[in-house]
Amino acid sequence: MGRYILRRAVQAVGTLLLVMLLLHLLTTVAIQLNGNPAQAFFGDKVATPAQIAAVEERFDLDDPCYDQVGNPCLGPFVERLGQYAQGDFGTNLRGREVADIVATAAPNTLRLFCIVLVTWLALGMVLGSVAARWRGSAGDHGIRLTSVLIDAFPVFVLLIVYRYVVAVPLHGWAEDTFGADSWPPYWFKPSFDPDHPWATVLVPGILLGLAGSAAFIRLVRASQLESYQGDHVRTARSKGLVERHVVVHHVVRNSSVPVVTAVGLTFAEALGGAVITEGLMNIYGMGGVLWGAVRDDDVSLVLGVVTLLAAVTVVVMIVVDIAYALLDPRIRYE
């Protein structure tokens, strides 16, 4: 097991470097094709070459390779890796420390993800198990239909309707009922409030989680159905074990394997939802930061943030692998 983890870790570092290189190349080409971000610094003003050159120097864009389409700009990339190794993540295009940006934005996104994850697992395990247990019943069909509807409904519509139609009256109602200093008004605050991060991220997180839960419900249902037909369940039943014991120990436990895998994979995908949720609910998080950085061709910010995200994703994948082994006795690592 120890050797396995070590090998996975080494592999992970390789993947990480590849991802960084890929992103570095993409952003570099973006700068080369799209023109210099230093120009955008001046907006509508017409800047002289000297002014542009000075701004390029200020933001480390002065390497001539950024002007040559097709040049992979490996020099700046290697230089950046060296800085990363020393713990220096550089600054964004406006001189703000990338580490500072991440330190502000990441906790908000992590809070969002926590709530999303809890929502997924809760809805997925409960509804999925119910649907599988009473397969073919009205409840099963109802759950399947609901999950499909959730899937088909774009998440941004859900959030817009919540923010503009539901949140304001709910907030007013909560303030009248519970008083302005209680928690409920914060739950329904139309935008994020950095002074009360958990309370104001709760509802957006649940909504985002709700939107992604359909796949989970289906997954849990499918894998539990499979388990119900498995030999080990039949054996357990024939041993005369109580049905509840069979369900909890043999069906639910076994079916949690694919669920855990899916959590790992969906982590990266959830970032897409985060861009939208953060934008609409005014949460300063990684999704919004990345979105802005990509739009502005902010190489150092894109790379800094993505490196961090990719690192987290890779770690999550490894953790998932290990959880896998712990949950499923059939899986062994050489």
Partner: peptide, 19 residues
Amino acid sequence: WTEYAAGETASWADFQADE
């Protein structure tokens, strides 16, 4: 000052909520 990613109109819901 509360900072809004989408600018002034994004603050409208908060205005309606008296924030």
